[in-house]
Design a protein around this nucleic acid. Structure first.
Lengths: 153, 153
DNA sequence: CGTGAAAGTCGTTGCCC
DNA sequence: GGGCAACGACTTTCACG
């Protein structure tokens, strides 16, 4: 699963991150190469899983998703069975955009994007009825200052 | 800046989110329409800013970005000038993937993606030397359970 | 490993309903 | 506003330096 990635690969990845809709010729010009070699590199990076899904960023507010919460979760349960159920619950809920297992005294953090505060409450009630959690703190976002998925290559 | 979005638009957006590389014909078939109307809708949605950047998801770990921190920030300063400097510092740092201003006693949350813990410390030192913050808590991600940018349309 | 050309596919436009 | 057809541009492949 490991791939050797050289400087040209990195430039190609940076360009794809910036704008995945541009043509091979454009990318080739910007990395100082030409179509075929760039195409071969992209194919290899895709097969290696370095390049994943190709998607578009949508304006959440324009589409009515006006509330974003970060949810800090502490739990006293650490058995495999509980964790399996908890993970499945998160995967199944589309309003959960991110979920991380943490080091330290907070066990999990979620990023939850919903239409409004009521929708968050519905999510919260559903979650705690599915799995036991010891302590939940919700942080409400007032303003998205910055949002990117780009890695600083 | 407001747009009327009907059911067909929503289906198109959902398809674009799922896979932005598929052809207009494919999208048209899946939403029960044909090329031209789909293309016109996409153009309008783009012009309205509902559809933003087209990008690819890269495998952060394969590219050596092995550490991800959520940073909770409290500050005692709330003047416009301080906030301007703080925002600029966040925008200028590519390792900051997300930044939100929060309601409640924590003022800001950041998501910071870096190569390793040392790189995080370098980021942290640079940040607190640029702007005064009252209290900083870093949560270290051990495992990315879920990560998506898709909205549940 | 890069180049160039060939082939098929796709985005884009204009026209008809 | 949706569908059809045509054009040009693009992706993808392959054969040659």
């Amino acid at each position: 699963m490991n791939v050797r990635i050289d400087d040209t690969d990195r430039k190609i990845l940076a360009e794809l991150q910036r704008d995945a809709s541009q043509s091979l010729d454009d990318i080739a010009r910007q990395v100082g190469s030409s179509k075929t070699p760039v195409w071969n590199r992209i194919r290899k990076l895709r097969e290696a899983g370095v390049i994943g899904q190709q998607t578009v960023m949508l304006d959440a507010e324009a589409l009515g998703f006006e509330a974003c919460f970060f949810v800090l979760i502490r739990t006293s349960e650490h058995e495999a069975e509980w964790q399996r159920k908890f993970l499945k619950a998160l995967q199944d809920r589309p309003e959960v955009q991110e979920a991380h297992r943490l080091a330290g005294d907070i066990d999990y953090i979620l990023k939850v994007r919903v239409r409004n505060a009521r929708a968050y409450d519905a999510f919260y009630q559903a979650l705690i009825s599915e799995v036991r959690v010891h302590n939940v703190t919700a942080l409400l976002s007032m303003e998205e200052i910055k949002s990117t998925v780009a890695l600083p290559l």
